[in-house]
Design a protein around this nucleic acid. Structure first.
Lengths: 234, 234
DNA sequence: CCAAAAGTGTTACCGTTACACCCATGG
DNA sequence: CCATGGGTGTAACGGTAACACTTTTGG
């Protein structure tokens, strides 16, 4: 096979390039990660992140979006590039570079469908003893660190909760992700003082009188505040 | 040419993969970036970051280190992965993915040597009107944002100053990178209160009586503090 | 001699911390 | 009826911001 180029020839060895997606979810006070069971070699039968080879006419991000759709039936979710892994031995098939992304999904988006080359799709707690394919354990570690670092300075935690949530929900999420206890009262004050939550408790006519108030995150206001120098911090 | 694989065949189109290095320096109260003048097509004669195609037997980081050495004569400097760029039209030769790194160099390391395929190497102020090859202007923007974000939470500013420096030097650096004025007194207090600077003013026997005190950054102490939960912030 | 630079001191203010406390409910 | 969980209040503390001020030097 000869490489088809337009104007300038270059004959360098070309590594294969894949995209892998670390998909986080939050359920029952646990941080979860979505894994697919491989139906092909290598690592047949092992669990791995959704991902695959990048096509000629798509960007890495497009590829990630396509894989999310194809292998897990997910769309319209938070997605961000994580890191590019290029260790020589990370894939037994030879030289394969992986551009890793991480995604955050809300519980209602949990419509799981096993796709092509996939035997099954399942959520796992990140603390479970996972035995992942390739170097995916290392990728997972990097992704968790990124999430821990970013959740304090950007309102990405809301991407892991339903559209409407309670303050105890949010508090729980932060304690779980950051792996430390956070004072309830202070957390509440800090979050509310930002004025970024919309109160929906008036619509809860039939709610049991002692239930927690329901809020949603005000993306529009957040964008406006950001543009005028505000910056989120928990 | 047939692709040589070990055990499993996969015949996906393979993009070419390059590594590009955004190299920052600091001189005369200006943030600088190191560029090389291209001696080959495409973009012959234009300025671009040091970089090139990744080899079969090297990781992306190895490639970046090699390019720093080959094209700019630099070694033993701060280096970190920045982002991977994969826009379809970013290279006129066809599908080329670039794994970008950014590096920080101290002034004394400014030993510039033009390497292979390079016509010249020069420092430019990041505020100059640069007309860069490929999508390097976009890469530069991402790199500057990363630097601005990271310098406040990790002691990477010291990587841009000589081993020994004064507090006004450091203050200047922060004001320049962050593009805003910072109160002298408060900055000084905050930095000194961390206890991470080693005072070398006793060795300045012949210094003019009114010169600024000379310090160096205590990497050992920083590492120890970090491991016990401390975290740097300016 | 005066402007500029290095370094120090002072104060008001504000956000965080670490609590204690209230209230309503449901088992 | 009381343990539980949602929600509120408060006082001490510590760091930050915004200054003023001193000293020394170099032009």
């Amino acid at each position: 096979m000869t490489v088809s180029v337009k104007k300038y020839a270059y004959e360098y060895p070309r590594p294969a390039v894949t995209v892998d997606c670390v998909i986080f979810g939050f359920d029952k006070n646990q941080l979860k990660v979505l894994l697919t069971k491989r139906a092909i070699e290598p690592f047949l039968g092992k669990w791995a992140f959704p991902g695959g080879f990048i096509q000629e006419e798509e960007t890495a991000e497009d590829c990630a979006l396509r894989k999310l759709q194809e292998e897990a039936g997910l769309q319209d979710i938070f997605l961000e590039q994580l890191y590019t892994f290029s260790d020589l031995k990370r894939d037994p098939r030879g030289r394969v570079i992986s551009i890793a992304y991480y995604a955050l999904v809300k519980p209602q988006a949990y419509v799981l469908e096993a796709g092509v080359d996939i035997e099954a799709v399942r959520w796992f707690g990140v603390d479970e003893n996972l035995d992942l394919a390739f170097d995916h354990q290392q990728i997972l570690s990097v992704a968790i660190e990124r999430l821990k670092g970013k959740i304090r300075y950007q309102p990405i935690g809301f991407e892991l909760l339903p559209e409407q949530f309670t303050l105890p929900d949010l508090h729980n999420l932060y304690e779980t992700v950051l792996q430390r206890s956070i004072d309830r009262g202070n957390f509440r004050k800090k979050i509310l003082s930002m004025g970024l939550l919309i109160d929906h408790s008036d619509k809860q006519k039939d709610r049991p009188a002692r239930a927690a108030k329901i809020y949603s995150f005000d993306k529009v206001k957040y964008k406006a505040l950001t543009e005028s120098g505000f910056y989120f911090e928990v």
